[in-house]
Write a protein that binds this DNA or RNA. Structure first.
Length: 551
RNA sequence: GCGCCUGUAGCUCAGUCGGAUAGAGCAACUGCCUUCUAAGCAGUAGGCCGGGAGUUCGAAUCUCUCCAGGCGCGCCA
């Protein structure tokens, strides 16, 4: 919708001999009386040209007027806005195009097949997913869908921290419970994992192996316990994610990076390039050369790799696999890690703007307004599983996506459940279901001209009501919203748009009857509904939320 | 101590790249179902955009400073 405006303004500027213009900014005015699309170009040119913005606007306007194109009205308003209002025929034409192409209408190729790697969730396989992981999953999934719809070649990846202290601690916790179950009163490890799931795993090992490991110290059967435990948890995580509607193309094991020598190779590359040095018996990465605030140890005095070493290898491998853009979605508590990882990618040649970290803020879980204490170590936490069982995956996902990812989120389980009828997700889904219901009615009444014939046979110019035109405009705004969401990596913009669209539809539905005695009008309105449905579905698909035929 | 995020209506949050009179949902209050799903609609009310200073034609948005909340600053993972 904005393309026509940009084109018209650019040509007008050209005939004014103004060609070195950066971007022509176009926005959707808040107030409908300010036209359909507005540009602030005259305001922005005022300073460089040293001319009054209204004067610039007038000059532009004169040059556009010579070729008015699809516009009904072009006005200068306020300090120098140029407001464009399209002709009704234009809306009808675009609506028809939308209906003919369906979802294809929205396939704007922004990414041009560029390969993007998006890593999200990446929870330690030391316990079930909690609600915070759920938020990361919802955001990551929606972002992947968003970029993928925009023509990017997206790979979804989960990084499995299956090496190191944490999984070992899980193994030790399981081992300890296993011993205690048979009466060996050995002390529980400090910071060990205490949830019921640990006991379940211990029990399972006991059922399978009986007393086999009772007389053995942990060191001798570490691989069995740790390996069994984290694989169990990984299966649990993967299962919950699948049920939450989240999928991955690849699960990258950290352990594998060690086993295959990827970490060692990466350290050698650092050395070759002169990016590392030895000091105090340890090996350091010169990350300050690439914007970090201090250098980081990669190989400890005792010869062990640090956690950062495997992260270097991991991110380097992302580059080696040929991704031009790398996006990591992390919990906000990891923000201190950004300069470190950024320095790695810069060291290996990725332009800075091609690495993006999206921080997902902590979810504060409430029940009836009261905070629910969560601590993974003590085993007191609400799992994603419980939230799914209690409030449902669609509600949870939608709520996660009604906020910017970096803003705090209070998630009240009781509210999400009890007020389910007022829940925004239902509001949007309801609009979709209502339309389906209208279609069903139409078929039952055998209304002619719908589904039996194509759009080309329908006279959409019967859509004359202001509410109808507003609805069509809203539909045509979608590509602009979509583009903004893609470029800013902000899926929540889609969520807000969908609520606005649903609101317009519900309002329209209450004011005007779709099915009436007037067959031609009915057909036109049915197709308008169809268009609304297509856009609702398009948006809900990106959010990963179902679009139900009936509710 | 240093760094990052947040502060907008009673509550939860939007607010496009610095633009027009600051927006929505919930809660509150008033109405609307013989007719396509009332999980809905129409309306009323609600604001010192945390405080202060600055930048300019113009600031919720940018800069500085202060206040409040959250988080991060290991040869831990």
């Amino acid at each position: 919708m904005k393309n026509e405006v940009i084109k018209a303004v650019r040509e007008a500027l050209k005939s004014l001999n103004l060609e070195n213009i950066p971007d022509i900014e176009v926005e959707i005015p808040k107030d409908e009386s300010h036209g359909d699309v507005a540009t602030t170009i005259a305001l922005n040119l005022a300073r460089p040209l040293k001319k009054a913005p209204r004067k610039i606007a007038e000059d532009i306007l004169i040059n556009i007027k010579e070729a008015p194109g699809p516009f009904e009205k072009i006005e200068i308003a306020g300090p120098g806005f140029i407001n464009f209002t399209y002709k009704k025929e234009y809306y009808i034409k675009r609506l028809e195009e939308l209906l003919q192409k369906g979802h294809e209408f929205f396939r704007i190729d922004i990414g041009k097949g560029k390969r993007v790697q998006i890593e999200y969730v990446s929870a330690n396989p030391t316990g079930p997913l909690h609600i915070g992981h759920g938020r990361g999953a919802a955001v990551g999934n929606a972002l992947c869908n968003l970029l993928s719809s925009a023509g990017y070649d997206v790979e979804r990846e989960f990084y499995v921290n299956d090496a190191g202290m944490q999984v070992k601690l899980l193994g030790l916790s399981v081992y300890t419970i296993y011993q205690q179950m048979s009466g060996n009163d050995i002390p529980f490890p400090e910071n060990g994992y205490k949830g019921d799931y640990v006991k379940d795993i211990s029990k399972e090992i006991n059922d399978k192996a009986g007393n086999k490991y009772l007389s053995k110290p942990f060191e001798e059967c570490e691989k069995v316990f740790t390996g069994f435990a984290y694989k169990k948890m990984l299966a649990n995580i993967s299962h919950d994610l699948r049920e939450f509607g989240i999928g991955f193309d690849r699960w990258q094991s950290e352990k594998e990076l060690f086993d295959k020598g990827t970490v060692k190779d990466a350290m050698e590359r650092l050395k070759e390039k002169g990016f590392s040095y030895e000091k105090d018996g340890a090996l350091w990465f010169r990350s300050t050369d690439f914007g970090d605030d201090k250098d980081r140890v990669v190989v400890k005095k005792d010869g062990e790799f640090t956690y950062f070493a495997s992260d270097i290898a991991y991110h380097k491998e992302k580059l080696d696999r040929g991704f031009g853009t790398i996006i990591d979605i992390w919990g906000a508590d990891h923000h201190g890690y950004i300069p470190r990882i950024r320095s790695v990618l810069r060291a290996f040649g990725l332009p800075e703007e091609n690495f993006k970290v999206i921080l997902v803020q902590i979810v504060s879980l409430l029940r009836e307004g009261q905070p629910v204490q969560m601590s993974k170590r003590s085993g007191e936490f609400i799992t994603l599983r419980e939230v799914m069982d209690e409030v449902g995956a669609d509600i949870a996902k939608f709520i996660f996506l009604t906020r910017r990812s970096d803003s705090h989120l209070d998630f009240d389980i009781e509210t999400a459940k009890r007020e389910s009828s007022d829940n925004p997700v239902f509001y949007v889904q309801y609009a979709f279901a209502r339309i389906s219901s209208i279609f069903k009615q139409a078929e039952e009444r055998r209304i002619q001209g719908f589904r039996s014939s194509g759009v080309q046979d329908i006279d959409l110019t019967h859509l004359k009501e202001d509410d109808e035109i507003s609805l069509i405009k809203k539909l045509l705004h979608y590509p602009m919203i979509f583009e903004g969401a893609v470029l800013s990596y902000e899926p929540h913009r889609i969520t807000f748009y969908l609520q606005e669209l649903a609101r317009l539809f519900h309002s329209y539905y209450n004011k005007h009857r779709v099915l009436s005695e007037d067959n031609k009008l009915t057909s036109a309105r049915l197709y308008l509904c169809k268009a609304v449905q297509i856009v609702l579905e398009e948006g809900l698909n990106i959010l990963g939320v179902r679009a139900p035929e009936r509710m």
